[in-house]
């Protein structure tokens, strides 16, 4: 049955958690929302700009920019988004 909301998980990893104060949260968006809507939500709630060269944004294990629709990619129920600082090898 189609619902009018999708629930996704947003995880704030490494130094980004300093800015959000939470490690992860389950967030609902109206169905047919996109990564653009997530970017707006994160900006309004935490003042974090996504996409941003100093913040890596991943949807289900792949960079937002790797999806054909880029920021217009529609959210699906159960999606996981991870936000973290740029990584460069250890």
């Amino acid at each position: 049955m189609q619902t009018d909301q999708v629930y996704i998980m947003i995880k704030y990893l490494a130094g980004i958690r300093e800015k959000t104060g939470v490690q992860e949260e389950r967030v609902s968006f109206p169905s047919r929302s996109t990564l653009n809507d997530v970017a707006d939500w994160v900006l309004n709630r935490y003042g974090l700009t996504v996409p941003n060269p100093r913040l890596m944004a991943i949807l289900n294990g792949r960079g937002w920019g790797q999806y054909p629709e880029k920021l217009s990619t529609e959210l699906k129920e159960g999606d996981t988004i991870c936000l973290f600082p740029p990584i460069s090898g250890g």
């Binding site: 995880k11 990893l13 490494a14 130094g15 300093e18 100093r54 991943i58 294990g61 991870c82 973290f84 600082p85 990584i87 250890g90």
Partner: peptide, 22 residues
């Protein structure tokens, strides 16, 4: 500015990230 996270957490900050990436 760009390496503030590295100063605070060093390379151990990748533990959580690499784990989440599986």
């Amino acid at each position: 500015e760009t390496r503030a996270n590295h100063t605070k957490f060093g390379t151990p900050q990748y533990i959580e990230v690499i784990n989440e990436l599986g």
